[in-house]
Design a protein around this nucleic acid. Structure first.
Length: 483
DNA sequence: AAAAAAT
């Protein structure tokens, strides 16, 4: 089975060949002929299955039927609209459209927030057939009458479930009301809740179902592992793991924007090139950081769930859950950034006692018992191994205090600097960082990692998180505040 | 539970 067998026109076949693809993926085999035939599609595909090309190629072919000919009623009008939930995702679809449309006289542009509107307006004035957009900025253009959607022939809703989660429903409905009723619509979603079905009912006419096997929710080329660890030692363990895999890149997920930035700083201070990406960063920073990571200029990208879905990073070997996601579905999306297109991938999760509950939810969903490996020197709280304990529901203030003490205890037990032999060379002091990191540990990465002078850089940083001894107070206050 | 998205 080749792309030619799917009925694609030569211009598209050439573009596919230019991009180096030879064989269509299952979702492409299913979707391409259906879309070319003009049907609406309800697609149940995970990302990383070739979904984007699966709708981009036939969409271009439909538009190419009368591309910019003088007889075309919609010459240089917006004829296709693709909506995506995040800016990065929109950009990625745009790249795909650009790649496959290179031999066709069709123009595409990407419309999203966080950047200057004027450049987008100029671009739209040129006459653009294919617009890839996030909903908010698109509506902004609609309001300013800088885009006309009355000639749209094709609509794609990508990652529809995510759009729902993000509260985009009103925006989507609004956009739908602006489009001609006589159009072809494609809806892609990883899950099918009642709400998605409702949306599909309103949006699609006699849709054909396209679905890749449900059981392959999680790529089989991914190796999963859980490292039980106390919450206080997580970042040290992360640095430890990264130092033992010196040549690999890793995408590290955290739950909050605050932790995101701090963790990236922590890794940088420990000589591991890292940066962070989250929604509070400027769009320019987000774009640049992602580019740097994709280009291999950055070893570690610390991210919130802004990067959890759909992002395609070539041959990314490691996804690390620094914090376990609180829904099992998020786990599937996060680790879906690795093990793509048949490559091998590793999904590593650092799990403390409080997170055990989420772990069992995840294992239920992916129908897989994830092996647990305690890394020596980074043992978890004892309660991690106690059946039924850990993380279910809210914790009382007393519990929280207890947890802090346990965490501090774990730090006390962390390996101490070895005493220098009398008369021997003294290592620089202190060798134990305030956060408990032990610099004297005999790390021997295969290739040396650049060493930063952590003793001075830590002392010099005014924006450090609170030192030991202050933290329990904050925890206590938080606990009391709950009542 | 937090994050994402128009300003």
């Amino acid at each position: 089975m080749s792309f030619a067998d799917l009925g694609l026109i030569p211009e598209l076949l050439n573009a596919v060949a230019d991009a180096g693809y030879t064989e269509p993926t299952p979702i492409q085999r299913q979707a391409i002929p259906i879309v070319i035939a003009g049907h609406d599609v309800m697609g149940g595909a995970q990302t990383g299955t070739g979904k984007t090309a699966g709708f981009t190629l036939p969409l271009l072919q439909r538009l190419a039927r009368h591309a910019n000919t003088s007889t075309s009623p919609a010459r240089h009008q917006t004829r296709a609209l693709i909506l995506a939930p995040t800016r990065e995702l929109a950009m990625q679809v745009y790249e795909s459209v650009k790649t496959y449309s290179r031999h066709l006289p069709l123009r595409a542009t990407c419309i999203y927030g966080g950047v200057d509107m004027n450049a987008q307006i100029q671009e739209l004035r040129r006459g653009i057939e294919i617009v890839i957009a996030t909903p908010g900025r698109l509506l902004d253009h609609v309001q300013q009458k800088t885009i006309n959607l009355t000639q749209v022939e094709m609509l794609v809703l990508d990652e529809a479930d995510r759009m729902l989660d993000m509260g985009f429903i009103p925006d989507i409905r609004r956009i739908l009301s602006l489009l001609p009723a006589n159009r072809q619509s494609l809806l892609f979603s990883a899950t099918f809740s009642e709400e998605i079905k409702k949306l599909a009912d309103q949006m699609l006419k006699n849709p054909q179902m396209v679905e890749v096997a449900r059981r392959n929710m999680v790529s089989e080329t991914i190796t999963h592992v859980v490292h039980p660890v106390s919450s206080g030692m997580k970042r040290n363990l992360l640095a430890h793991l990264l130092r033992h895999q010196p040549d690999t890149q890793a995408l590290v997920f955290v739950d909050t924007k605050l932790v995101c930035g701090r963790l990236a700083h922590f890794l940088e201070r420990h000589g591991i090139s890292a940066d962070s990406i989250h929604g509070d960063k400027s769009q320019q920073q987000r774009t640049e950081t992602l580019e740097a990571f994709k280009a291999g200029k950055l070893r570690v990208l610390v991210a919130t769930d802004v990067a959890a879905r759909g992002l395609d990073i070539d041959e990314l070997p490691y996804v690390i859950n620094f914090e376990l996601p609180h829904t099992a579905e998020d786990y599937v999306h996060r680790i879906g950034r690795t093990g793509r297109a048949g490559h091998k991938g590793n999904a590593v999760s650092l799990v403390c006692a409080e997170e055990k509950h989420w772990l069992s939810e995840i294992e239920k969903l992916i129908k897989l018992q994830i092996p647990q490996e305690v890394v020596p020197g980074f043992e978890p709280e004892p309660e991690f191994f106690e059946a039924g304990k850990g993380g279910r529901g809210r914790r009382s203030a007393a519990d929280r205090t207890d947890r802090v003490e346990k965490t501090e205890g774990a730090r006390e037990r962390a390996p101490r600097a070895t005493q220098p032999a009398a008369g021997g060379k003294r290592p620089p002091r202190p060798t134990i960082a305030p956060d408990g990191f032990d610099f004297s540990k005999p790390y021997e990465p295969a290739t040396p990692v650049p060493v930063v002078d952590t003793t001075t850089s830590i002392a010099a940083r005014p924006d450090e998180p609170p030192r030991r001894g202050q933290r329990p107070v904050a925890f206590l206050l938080g606990g009391l505040g709950r009542k």
